[in-house]
């Protein structure tokens, strides 16, 4: 029973110069937004930037993004058969696409 989620994703390298990209993502009920983002990377565009490590366990806590303006973990938010707007965290410095600087200052590399 495959459904289609319409993912509207903010992409860009600086917060004031972004663009929207739209992807139709097929999914089975129960699949996560991160499943959809990984599907986009392997079948549409490997340059889509998203931060994650543990994929499914919600252990690494790296995949925080905003879904329709609310902060979620991409690995536990579920895909739905509607338009879903995905944006980087608005209160963190943008790195690229859905990736923001989420590490505490003491854990970042500085010369």
């Amino acid at each position: 029973m495959t459904s289609i989620a319409n993912l509207k994703i903010w992409r860009g390298e600086s917060a004031d110069a972004g663009r929207w990209e739209h992807y139709e993502v097929p999914f089975e009920p129960g699949q996560s937004v991160l499943d959809g983002l990984r599907w986009i990377r392997t079948t549409r565009d490997p340059s889509l930037a998203i931060r994650f490590s543990c994929i499914n366990a919600n252990a690494c806590k790296e995949c925080m993004i905003e879904l329709d303006g609310t902060t979620v973990y991409a690995c536990t938010a579920r895909l739905a058969a509607r338009e879903m707007t995905l944006t980087p965290l608005s209160n963190k410095r943008l790195v690229r696409d859905l990736v923001t600087e989420i590490a505490p200052p003491a854990e970042r590399f500085v010369k």
Binding site: R51, S53, C54, A57, A59, C60, K61, E62, A103, E107
Partner: peptide, 15 residues
């Protein structure tokens, strides 16, 4: 202490 992801979050231990 260098990590390709966040410090002490990725890898196998946390899993």
């Amino acid at each position: 202490l260098a990590d390709r992801s966040l410090i002490g979050r990725g890898g196998a231990t946390v899993m």
